[in-house]
């Protein structure tokens, strides 16, 4: 009697997952989400920050004003910002496969997430840099700083708490993107929520993933706020 398997599987999946089994399901998923978001944020910061610095300083009044290059760079960033993540993810599948050799899993999710995250972060940081008074950059120039020294100490240095705020926003957006990427089999909390909660009507898992996502986003926000406070002198002392 080798045909009992299907019915057993169906019965098993139609019932909600027992609460005791949730950790076994969610802990690895959380780990995958953190890995995905962590790798993506690393790429985003490393690529997005220089992009933002270039955008800011090539714009009129910047340290190395260059209208033409600024126009092109700004246009590229806008394209990256234009596409909804789901569309971007689908559109660049051939590119993803070319880079990672696969179109499912964490590696495959990291590519579209980074491509969406870099322009997002670049615009956030550009905005932060714009908030630094021009006179601070001028004072740094008058103090004999080289462009790199000025960017580091005056621009990024002054904007640092604001950039951390932007980093928090960006990280939370990437957690959201990782859930969307979960639908193409990237793993993580999003994948669990979709396969168990949505496709199998498993209420327990659905609620558990929602709670977990809320907790994760809250934790990231609290950490971000704490870092902003710690790096802003007048907030730190109170």
């Amino acid at each position: 009697m080798g045909v009992t398997l299907p019915s057993a599987v169906i019965v098993r999946t139609l019932a909600d997952t027992p609460i005791a089994d949730l950790p076994a399901l969610l802990v690895p998923a959380l780990g995958e989400t953190l890995a995905m978001v962590g790798i993506v944020m690393l790429v985003v910061v490393l690529a997005g920050t220089p992009t933002a610095v270039c955008l800011h300083n090539m714009a009129p009044g910047g340290l190395f004003e260059n209208k033409a290059v600024y126009g092109v760079l700004s246009w590229i960033v806008n394209i990256g910002r234009s596409l909804p993540f789901l569309v971007l993810m689908a559109a660049i599948v051939p590119f993803t496969r070319f880079v990672t050799g696969t179109n499912i899993g964490i590696a495959a999710a990291v590519v579209p997430m980074s491509l969406a995250g870099i322009p997002f972060f670049a615009r956030l940081v550009e905005n932060c840099l714009r908030e630094v008074p021009r006179s601070v950059t001028q004072a740094a120039r008058a103090s004999g700083g080289s462009p790199l020294q000025i960017i580091r100490s005056a621009q990024l240095g002054e904007a640092f708490p604001a950039i951390l705020g932007g980093l928090t926003i960006n990280t939370i957006a990437m957690i959201e993107y990782s859930a969307i990427a979960g639908t193409i089999g990237a793993g993580g909390i999003g994948y669990v929520a979709v396969t168990y909660g949505y496709q199998r009507f498993d209420q327990t898992v659905m609620i558990a993933t929602v709670v977990l996502l809320i907790a994760l986003v809250t934790a990231v926000q609290l950490l971000g706020d704490g870092l902003v406070r710690a790096t802003t002198p007048h907030l730190r002392r109170r």
Binding site: V136, Q138, A139, A142, A154, E158, T231
Partner: peptide, 15 residues
């Protein structure tokens, strides 16, 4: 570097 400048509102680095 031969010319020191004092700016309006000092323009200090706040951090």
């Amino acid at each position: 570097r031969r010319i020191g400048t004092v700016f309006q509102s000092a323009s200090l680095l706040s951090r």
